[in-house]
Design a binder for these strands. Sequence first.
RNA 1: GAGUCAUUAGCUCAGUUGGUUUAGAGCGCUGCCUUGACAGGGCAGAGGUCACUGGUUCGAGUCCAGUAUGACUCACCA
Length: 876
Amino acid sequence: MSLAKQYDAKSVEKKWYDYWMDHDYFSSTPDQRDPFTIVIPPPNVTGVLHMGHMLNLTIQDILIRRARTKGMNACWVPGTDHASIATEAKVVKKLREAGIKKSDLSREEFLKHAWEWKENYGGIILDQIKKLGASCDWNRTSFTMDETRSKAVTKAFIDLYNKGVLYRGKRMVNWDPEARTVLSNEEVIYKEEKGKLYHLKYFTEDKSAHLVIATTRPETLLGDTAVAIHPDDERYASFRGKKVIVPLVNRPVPVIQDSYVDIEFGTGALKVTPAHDPNDYDLGKKHQLEVIEIFEEDGSISPDGQLYIGKDRFKVRKEIVADLEEAGLLEKIEDYDHNIGRSERTNAVIEPRLSLQWYVNMKDISKKALEAVETDTVEFFPKKMKNTYRHWMANIRDWCISRQLWWGHRIPAYYVGESVYVGESKEEAYKKALVDHPELTMDQLIQDEDALDTWFSSWLWPISVFDGFENEHDINYYYPTSVLVTGWDIIFLWVARMIIAGYEWKNEFPFKHVYFTGMVRDKKRRKMSKSLGNSPDALALIENFGADGVRFGMLSCSPAGGDLLFDEKLCEQGRNFSNKIWNALRLVDGWEVDHNAVQPIENELAIDWMFSLTNQILEKVDTDFNSYKLSEALISLYSYVWTDFCSWYLEMIKPAYQTPIDPITVEKTKELFRYICTMLHPFMPFITEEVWQQVKGQESIDCILSQYPEVDVYDPQILKDVEFIKEITSGLRDLRNKNNIKPKELLHLYVQQDDVTEDLIKDPRKKALLSKMAFLADVSISSDAVENSISFIAGKSKFFIQHESEKDPKELLEEKQKELEYQRGFVASVEKKLANERFVNNAPSAVVNKEKQKLEDGMSRIKILEESIKELSAKL
RNA sequence: GAGUCAUUAGCUCAGUUGGUUUAGAGCGCUGCCUUGACAGGGCAGAGGUCACUGGUUCGAGUCCAGUAUGACUCACCA
């Protein structure tokens, strides 16, 4: 049965994924082999597959599949995280669309809806991951809120609490008024935005004088409890120790002096709102100022604000400006660009807010984690990420882990008044509480309303996916894992914390290597985002170019850590590559084998050459993998398969049209195909499995489990020899091109006599190969000039054919003269080096000899060019 | 404001401890090619003062200093 002209990725990919699954090839259990383990960076359960995931997953699959063919016990654990804010937001939105308000539901009712939502949509991304060909051990699929993972979270919390690492404190936090929860610094995005600077008048109590304060947030004056000036600022000397009146609310507040105030900025006078600005909070503490909280959780004004009660902060800003103007207390408004922090999830402007939260004291528990990276115990790729990591870890702040959400792990802390009791269950906490409060009833023990930050479960991931807090069996075998593949944007949120957790609970790092991928951007270097609409539909890409094509496209342009400018063309290139391999297979598949045919001698050489080259590539790919240069490895394989194997090798051994081929050549060629399939399999698993099945011969094993070849010794001389034959062939093709000689018209090639050409002519294998590739009737050495000839140079030797040049001799002469100039420049630079005594004396002899060889070859080329020019000039 | 990194062909990038015939690849571009694996193809070609200025060295795209431009991270002053 003949093969289809074009490769059909769609049917092939489904067929083999099902086949692999049916044979349980992805699943792993501990055995005597070395483990190679990766835990997936869990995508949000709300997520759909996007470009970042595809890059990330492709890389992980490449590493896993390669390890598998190298005989290791490869285990890739998939899963998702519960993404508390994102998921809760989605559920709230869905409920709202159905006419249900979250505030009308009890916690239990809401969670029922949330779980329902998770059951319906949570598996989507996992199915999409399968389409990409990911060879995850699906039996191990985990979810941060499933039973095992939840237990781990509770255990970790209690353990830290007992060690005294957790504490509860009132702090100024980043408050998201839309999600009504606290955010970590990492979840706030600062960006320059256009704003205004409002200049407001604060009068003294007797109204005799006023000072002017510049502020971007006039509405916060409702919470002002002081005005600050610099002690050295003589402009405000008369206000020292006095009180001024806060506009509109008419509250007298002290004028305090503090060197924190920047004399140069604005008017040099600062209004102080301790409840709603981190710096003001510190000032307030220092000067023992009153703290007035004027905002509700949703950003509206609270009764303590006195005015505008219940109105939203931005509405109030407009109104208060109008009211101030009317009262004559507004001096002027200036345009002013400043940084505004917004919630990464809801885009709401962050409101600094005082709040009682749970914190992890990071100082001590992060020490080992910093050291591990400093000493490369945990190695980062690319290395430069160490700097970023060090900077953050050295200045680490305490981690606020409580979130005012329902979807997530509820904090296992219970209160009796001010006393705190933690426990895996309410019963356990109750027992502890009874010690202090013998009269306590169960109902009087109140559990914390808040849930834990999602990262508080993610940081346990490399341990919890193996049930590492409860069960030794798997964790002892798989932990520490081999490599973590993730984006650099979550180096603090996730990577650093996992390393900390690893040392905290396993006393060992969670992964040996961390490979940071770049950001996927569009051609214009913009980040791919939903709002810009510049992100291609991942599944549509797979549909159009095949998973192999997309994997190729993602990889071929993604240096570690570097940004990746995604272009659909790259996937197209990948698809075309599949097609190329497919058609190479078709060629070989179509050959008629004559079992009595003798192998032509040029095939012998071609095969020797191709095997040598294969070993060279194997070596190169190994080196690239060791330093995670995956895209370089792929590019090497691409050019090895396309250029060397298809364009040269197959042409070398191809029998004449409708002529049968000898069995040895076919067998060797199939063997080469198998090498190609195994080497390329990690990158393009489907096409390689498909082709493998056609060429596997006696091998009963499938490509996915085929043994990765070891590098064998090879003869570099054979690579040089064939390189020379290729150079002559290309030179002659160019000559044909320029002189309108048909590509396949047989020619007689004359060769200038020297050591290299003599070797070429005398070796029948080389001569035969050259003749076949260059379409030669004959090759002969000629010391005499041949009449009416045109020539070219390959290496350092002259080659020519008897043919009247069709080119304008003048043009030809110019071309040769240009070339001569180049060669003279080249020779001059080499001569300069060799004339330098210090070079000849100091440089290693190998380098000096190389230079001498360069000089000799250059001189030889100059001589040939000079002769040609002389001949050409004579004709003019 | 502090720090990190980058600057090589029209575009995107390689270039491993300084020495690989005065720099490589892919895409794009130009010319030619179609019965025979593949137009999702073949053959060939053009295209670069390695950002700039100095320095170290026998030798610098590669090391050092400065300049310019850009990107990112962290911290943020009303």
